[in-house]
Amino acid sequence: MALEVNQIVGGYSQIPVLHKVSFTVKPGELVGLIGLNGAGKSTTINHVIGLLRPFSGSITLNGIKIDQDPAEYKRQIAYVPEAPVLYNELTLREHLELTMTAYGLAPEQTWPRAHQLLKTFRLDNKLDWFPADFSKGMKQKVMICCAFMTNAKLLIVDEPFYGLDPLAVHDLLNLIEERKQAGTAVLMSTHVLDTAQKYCDRFVLLANGRVRAHGTLDELRAEADQPNESLDDIYLRLARNDDDE
């Protein structure tokens, strides 16, 4: 098991946003974290990447908890945030260099992969540009390049489809597929449900900080007793039911 989230209760201040959230992501598996705005997707991710500490419950990554060995825990994670976060003072090339230094990657072996990624996202001629010169979509691509360049065992991708052009979305999905084949666990949050339905192996449906359902599409359908429903329908019904409660 790569990532095991076990009964976490957590949030930003004293008030819990997440209530006993549990799920797992296995190596070579793409798990979709699905939910409306404010359902707790980003909060969950913030706990997994160690930005927030859970009030109770535990998060284990290949047997390591963040408190046991923070450096080793973090080395296993690569993260593509929802809104691109870059250093204003660094060029694209320097962002890649910094990521290599931080993750202790050997430049000779990593640069070829980096160049390949840059080429895929049509950034290979912009190595000396500063973030101020990039559009939002380009910044997002820089984040993707930095994350996919590492050997992380867990990739966390937060709402990747905004601001990316259709070609880039396609390329990103291909990359995720490639990494999955290589045994990387991938956790992706999104509310673009038809894409999620096509690509994710399993789903964790969040609403109001609780896991409302999880499993493969067939399992979700069986649970809802609607064998032909799409993920979209299943989720909408769940969300509406929640509102009525």
Partner: peptide, 14 residues
């Protein structure tokens, strides 16, 4: 200066 950048918290560096 970089406290607001989440990546500085993610890097496996103490």
């Amino acid at each position: 200066q970089y406290a607001d950048n989440v990546f500085t918290h993610l890097y496996p560096v103490s």
